[in-house]
């Protein structure tokens, strides 16, 4: 299975984050700014990758690190979908460890992440 690497991109107005998913050791990260108009198109390969990763090795261990400076509303919808896929993985025997780094004094994002934790029931470590 191939690694997934998508470079961070910034075009005058919108911004997409860096995606770095390692198939060999299960270390994955999304970092940067997710200010995207068409989030479905951008995150679709990520969803596909996660699905394949868990279907190949259901008892795999994944370590996901999230580090956003900002994400817009439609990106947050995509993040929900992504986290639900991870949740599904844990239900099928995988081990998932998530670390979410939140920018200092951004309590809105913190609130959001807390909401996500309660919503998904996933164990997410919040780091500042």
């Amino acid at each position: 299975m191939d690694n997934l690497l998508i470079k961070e991109e910034e075009n005058n107005f919108f911004c997409s984050p860096k995606i770095d998913f390692n198939a060999a050791n299960g270390e994955c990260s999304i970092s940067g700014e997710s200010f995207i108009e068409n989030t479905v198109e951008f995150y679709c390969p990520v969803f596909e990758w996660i699905k394949n990763f868990f279907s190949e090795t259901p008892d795999a261990t994944m370590k996901l690190s999230l580090d956003f400076s900002y994400y817009n509303t439609s990106s947050s919808k995509a993040l929900y979908d992504l986290l639900f896929l991870l949740k599904k993985g844990t239900e099928n025997g995988a081990t998932v460890k998530i670390i979410w780094k939140i920018p200092e004094d951004d309590f809105e994002m913190e609130d959001d992440v807390i909401d996500i934790i309660s919503e998904t029931g996933l164990n997410i470590d919040i780091v500042y």
Binding site: E10, C15, E33, S69, Y70, D105, D106, F107, E108
Partner: peptide
């Protein structure tokens, strides 16, 4: 690319 932020 830093947002104004709620605290500020």
């Amino acid at each position: 690319r830093k947002k104004y932020g709620m605290t500020k």
